[in-house]
Design a protein around this nucleic acid. Structure first.
Length: 499
RNA sequence: GGCGCCGUAGCCAAGUGGUAAGGCAGAGGUUUGCAAAAUCUCCAUUCGUCAGUUCGAUCCUGACCGGCGCCUCCA
């Protein structure tokens, strides 16, 4: 393995070296399930999915843990607003989230721990921090004392004294009054008798947000993780606090490497629930193939911001997402190419000692190299573009009069598609199905009926048989005006929706 | 006030101390009954501005202009 990753802790790209060279223990902060996953979540989990796929492609075992926060004050609040039971609300959104992850082509984590089933571990960790003098009780709450951990700030590279207290304008005065230091954070929050909560040595309550990740990651992966990931917004305070809690409790380094992905932005501002400028993954699934969303997330380096654009009509309705539409065309191109390769007639594939083009022969290695370098997915997609072009060239050549394709090249191209699926999770679907789905969705969006289109095509085929090209062209023109493109091939005429 | 990021062609976007990947759009060609698809060729003497270091800078340093993130909701 030769993977280099940018480590937030050191601020540098460095070799990724798990404690056990053959086994990477990876923890990624999952969502708080009080609403549907938006595109920011989609990006984050696609990034770590590619990381896990790449490490596995490099031949090492990965234990991938991604939690679900199903106990949190946001869930409580949303449940109250909607008149639902918090647990029921969390369960519902956890299911939706899982469904969205699958549609985006993300692998399931090996372990997906939930706060609701780890209360004992959380309580034990809090107790350990109290016993060690790193946490204190205050009116039913338990707080972590940042001053008891001298290295506090090492991840986000800030010093306690230099931070502006209340800069985020989000402080709760009542809570602040209970703390010894403004940066102290809640490990356990008191719940009133009838409210959502669990019994603990300090009374009825619920865990603070940060402690759960420490408790669950260490339970499933040990005291020292190889890699901990999440969105850039988690660097401070969430991950900083995780380090403080975990290292204060164990005295060991919490994670060897910290990885953070950049935001999805709207008009150069971070997309977030609180700003209200978000699209959920589901909003997009109705408009484009989920795989196009996945592809699009890979067009920008994972640490850079990804700005989202869309078109509006005069009434202010969203009419389209040009970036996703472009990505969908690339995904369709990928599948068309894969289908052509698979459909090469056997007699056109011959033994030959001709050398394969490097774009084909070297594709798997090129993918590996680009991802080895801090998960450079835009480079991987550039290599993919060259690969697909070369595969099409190979097919073009084979389908010319008396044309042939060397068997070795065809096999290497097929291996290239397997590597693509393994590394990036692209091209995993059945080509026929996804291409038809794209076509039919576009037709539907234009208010067209497939049966009617096919009837006109049949009429045109008759006209062409009798060499009535005038009529054939009239029909072609008529359909083209509707956005339907006809493709005359040796097997007959097929159709697609124009891009 | 502290910490940090970004500014590359019409658009999106990689990248390197030695002369700018890839995609979209655009122009022309091959192919096709005509098309579409596919493919080929062309398309930034130039990397926000100005200085400096260097034999040489888009890449290093400094200043400036413009944009953004975090400093207890956040992926």
């Amino acid at each position: 393995m030769n993977v280099r990753l940018y480590n937030t802790l050191t601020g540098q790209k460095e070799p990724f070296e798990p404690a056990d060279p053959n086994h990477a223990r990876v923890y990624v902060c999952g969502p708080t399930v009080y609403d549907y996953a938006h595109l920011g979540h989609a990006r984050c989990y696609v990034v770590y999915d590619v990381l896990v796929r790449h490490l596995r492609s490099d031949g090492i075992k990965v234990t991938y843990v991604r939690n679900i926060t199903d106990v949190d004050d946001k869930i409580l609040k949303r449940a109250a607003e909607t008149g639902t039971e918090p647990t029921e609300l969390a369960t519902r959104f956890a299911e939706a989230y899982s469904e969205d992850m699958h549609r985006l082509g993300n692998l399931d984590p090996d372990i997906e721990p939930r706060v609701s089933t780890h209360l004992e571990d959380i309580v034990a960790l809090v107790q350990r921090l109290i016993d060690g003098g790193h946490a204190y009780l205050a009116d039913g709450d338990v707080y972590f004392s940042v001053e008891s951990f001298p290295e506090y700030g090492k991840l986000s590279h800030r010093e306690l004294g230099k931070m502006k207290v209340g800069a985020s304008d989000r402080l709760d005065d009542a809570q602040t009054a209970r703390k010894r230091h403004p940066a102290d954070f809640a490990l356990w929050k008191k719940s009133e008798d009838d409210a959502w909560g669990w019994e603990s040595p300090w009374g009825r309550g619920r865990p603070g947000w940060h402690i759960e990740c420490s408790a669950m990651s260490m339970k499933h992966l040990g005291d020292t993780l190889d890699l901990h990931g999440g969105g850039l917004d988690l660097v401070f305070p969430h991950h900083e606090n995780e380090i403080a809690q975990s290292e204060a409790a164990t005295g060991k380094p919490f994670s060897r490497c910290w990885m953070h992905n950049g935001f999805v932005e709207v008009d150069k501002e971070k997309m977030s629930k609180s700003l209200g400028n978000f699209f959920t993954a589901r909003d997009l699934f109705d408009r484009v193939e989920p795989e196009a969303i996945r592809y699009f997330m890979m067009t920008v380096h994972y640490r850079a911001p990804l700005n989202l654009d869309w078109n509006l009509d005069e009434a202010g309705n969203v009419t389209g997402f040009p970036q996703f539409e472009e990505a969908e065309r690339r995904v369709a191109y990928l599948y068309k190419t894969k289908k052509r390769l698979a459909g090469l007639p056997l007699k056109r594939v011959v033994d030959s000692d001709a050398l394969s083009p490097t774009e084909i022969a070297g594709f798997s290695e090129a993918l590996r190299e680009s991802l080895d370098d801090d998960l450079n997915m835009p480079i991987a997609l550039a290599k993919l573009a060259e690969f697909l072009k070369a595969v099409n060239e190979l097919c073009d050549e084979a389908m010319r009069k008396k044309g042939k394709a060397p068997r070795s090249s065809v096999e290497q191209a097929k291996a290239g598609f397997r590597a693509l699926e393994a590394e990036l999770g692209l091209g995993a679907e059945a080509a026929e199905l996804i291409l038809l789905r794209i076509r039919d969705r576009r037709a539907k969006a234009s208010g067209l009926e497939a049966a009617k289109i096919e009837r006109r095509i049949a009429e045109r085929t008759e006209a062409r048989k009798s060499e009535d090209f005038g009529e054939a062209d009239r029909i072609r023109g008529e359909l083209a005006a509707l956005g339907v493109e006809l493709l005359d091939g040796p097997e007959g005429t097929s159709w697609t929706m124009a891009d």
